[in-house]
């Protein structure tokens, strides 16, 4: 199960994207919208970011193993341009999270990936959060109930 994860190009969002890419099969992309609405896309190649042109993105020419679904993350009030929603011919399911605020973002990402106990714990520690604040439902925590 490969997930395309698209994050805004800011330090905090890149870090979360890289953390996910280190734990799950991930096609990680970062985007930046310029002042005139122009889109810059970078793909994580495992050790460096490489430019991905809009043409290559549209045709899905930039990866070897296609994603099964996509998770797009956007800043509140800064919607991801339609051109960055991956076309249906190379990814079927597409989901969007419209916040970059750490707590709700980790909560929703954890639900999407169905984090196990050690993932919830790892991300909570990593970002200095209580596990219960990012996993209020107590998902995959046996002792919670």
């Amino acid at each position: 199960e490969v997930t395309l994860v698209m994050v805004p190009r800011d330090e905090a969002s890149l870090q979360k994207g890289l953390d996910l890419a280190n734990r799950y099969p991930t096609l990680l992309l970062s985007y930046k919208i310029g002042a005139r609405g122009e889109v810059s896309l970078h793909g994580w190649a495992g050790s460096e970011w490489v430019n991905v042109t809009p043409e290559k993105y549209k045709t899905g020419e930039f990866f070897r193993n296609g994603p099964n679904s996509a998770l797009l993350i956007e800043e509140p009030g800064m919607p991801i341009p339609e051109s960055l929603v991956p076309p249906v011919d190379w990814v079927e399911s597409v989901y969007k999270i419209s916040t970059t605020d750490t707590r709700p973002l980790l909560h929703l990402i954890g639900q999407y990936y169905d984090f196990d106990y050690k993932d919830w714990k790892w991300f909570a520690n990593r970002y200095g959060m209580d596990m219960a604040s990012i996993n209020p439902e107590g998902l995959n925590i046996a002792w919670y109930h």
Partner: peptide, 13 residues
């Protein structure tokens, strides 16, 4: 408010 306010299904098969 629930965090689900930030969650959107853009497309499912």
């Amino acid at each position: 408010a629930s965090d689900l306010q930030y969650w959107f299904v853009v497309r499912i098969p």
